[in-house]
Computed example of a mutant assay.
Amino acid sequence: MLKTIVKHLLFCCLFILLCQPALPGNPAADLVKQGNDAYAGADYAKAAQLYEQALAQGVESAALYYNLGNAYYRQQKTAFSILNYERALKLQPHNKAAQNNLQLAKERIANPIDELPEVFYRRWWAAVLGILPSGIWAGGAVLFLWLSAGLGILFFLSATAKQKKYSFAGAVSCLVLAVLLHVFAYNRHQNETAKNYAVIMQPAANLKKGPSDSSESTAELPEGAKVRTNERVNGWVRITLTDNREGWVNEQNLTTI
């Protein structure tokens, strides 16, 4: 009787699957494919346009930003290529191809701003966080939390002192790892969603002492320079340069990474 019921259920499931209408193709994926074909055919302007359309439809990946950066690089659009390589590295910090191409693009910047070396522990911390995306760090935290709970239950059910000792040690170790991975997940998520860096997109943007056109100019910023954004006031953004100088720039001159 049970076998007959199972057979009928399997038959019904198979019938439903076979009767389903064909799902339409993913328009965004089609745009990416068309962009790849255009790039392969050396039509870099069309490739960039198609990649931008895919992004506008909600598709976001390190590979797509990397391809878009390449398309702009081929068109000699340095600032746009840097912006998209930076966005690719924001999602995938250890992407060697994006790192290398970003460096090549930066070499095209006229009068680049000096970059002060980053403190070693910040560089180490960023490297560790970038190993995995936030979702995987979070999944690991949940896994070790469940393991800790299971070992905790085993501790109370253990009959011998030796079993209690090992289950308690395991539960504490898993709990510590769960907390650590949660910290990694939280900080990685903050990095993935942060909007505190931007790229200067206009040539010869003026760095001002205050948030107004009438304020004194202190420097001329090169197109393609990466800056850290701070507060915003009436269409002006207070920024910090890679050499730690600060000032104000019109928000129309930059695009957030």
Results as ranks from 00 to 15, higher is better:
Gly135Phe: 02
Ala56Asp: 13
Pro93Ile: 12
Glu118Cys: 07
Thr229Leu: 08
Val199Thr: 05
Asn191Ile: 02
Glu251Asp: 00
Gly224Arg: 06
Leu17Pro: 11
Ala169Ser: 07
Leu241Gln: 07
Cys19Ser: 15
Ala204Ile: 03
Gln99Asn: 07
Gly224Tyr: 02
Phe184Lys: 11
Trp137Ser: 04
Phe144Glu: 00
Pro93Glu: 14
Ala56Asn: 14
Leu116His: 03
Ala161Phe: 02
Ala97Glu: 14
His8Asn: 15
Lys90Tyr: 12
Arg123Tyr: 02
Val237Leu: 01
Tyr44Ile: 10
Gly139Thr: 07
Asp213Gly: 07
Phe155Ser: 04
Leu221Ala: 04
Lys165Pro: 00
His182Leu: 15
Ile257Tyr: 09
Glu223Lys: 13
Pro21Cys: 03
Leu50Cys: 04
Lys3Arg: 12
Leu23Glu: 02
Ala22Gly: 15
Ala138Met: 14
Gln99Arg: 14
Pro112Tyr: 12
Trp137Val: 01
Thr229Ala: 02
Glu60Ile: 09
Cys12Leu: 15
Leu89His: 08
Ala161Ile: 00
Glu86Lys: 14
Gly58Gln: 10
Lys226Pro: 08
Asn206Ser: 14
Leu55Gly: 11
Arg188Leu: 07
Lys90Asp: 11
Leu175Gly: 15
Leu145Asn: 07
Leu17Phe: 05
Gly247Leu: 06
Phe155Arg: 05
Gly25Tyr: 05
Lys77Ser: 00
Gly150Ala: 03
Tyr73Arg: 07
Asn244Lys: 11
Thr255Ala: 03
Leu145His: 11
Cys12Ala: 14
Lys33Leu: 11
Ala47Tyr: 12
Asn244His: 13
Asn67Phe: 01
Pro117His: 15
Glu86Leu: 15
Trp124Asp: 05
Met201Asp: 00
Leu154His: 12
Pro93Tyr: 14
Ala56Val: 11
Val6Asn: 05
Ala194Trp: 02
Ile82Pro: 12
Leu143Ser: 10
Lys162Tyr: 10
Gln57His: 10
Ile131Gln: 07
Cys13Gly: 06
Leu64Gln: 00
Leu55Asn: 05
Pro24Val: 03
Leu14Cys: 13
Lys33Gly: 02
Val59Arg: 09
Leu31Val: 03
Val32Tyr: 03
Gly247Asn: 04
Leu157Gly: 01
Ala225Glu: 08
Ile153Ala: 10
Arg87Pro: 04
Leu31Thr: 04
Asp30Phe: 01
Leu241Met: 13
Leu143Phe: 13
Phe80Gln: 03
Leu151Cys: 00
Gly135Tyr: 04
Phe15Met: 09
Asn230Thr: 05
Glu231Leu: 09
Val176Ala: 01
Asp114Ile: 13
Phe11Cys: 08
Leu18Trp: 14
Arg108Trp: 02
Lys33Pro: 06
Glu115Cys: 13
Phe168Asp: 00
Val233Arg: 14
Val227Gln: 00
Tyr85Ser: 07
Leu147Cys: 03
Pro21Glu: 06
Ile5Cys: 04
Tyr121Gln: 12
Val6Cys: 12
Val176Tyr: 00
Ser212Asp: 03
Arg238Lys: 15
Tyr39Thr: 12
Trp146Gly: 06
His189Ser: 09
Lys96Gly: 06
Gln252Leu: 08
Arg245His: 09
His189Lys: 14
Asn26Gly: 09
Lys33Ile: 09
Ala127Tyr: 13
Lys209Ser: 10
Gly140Thr: 12
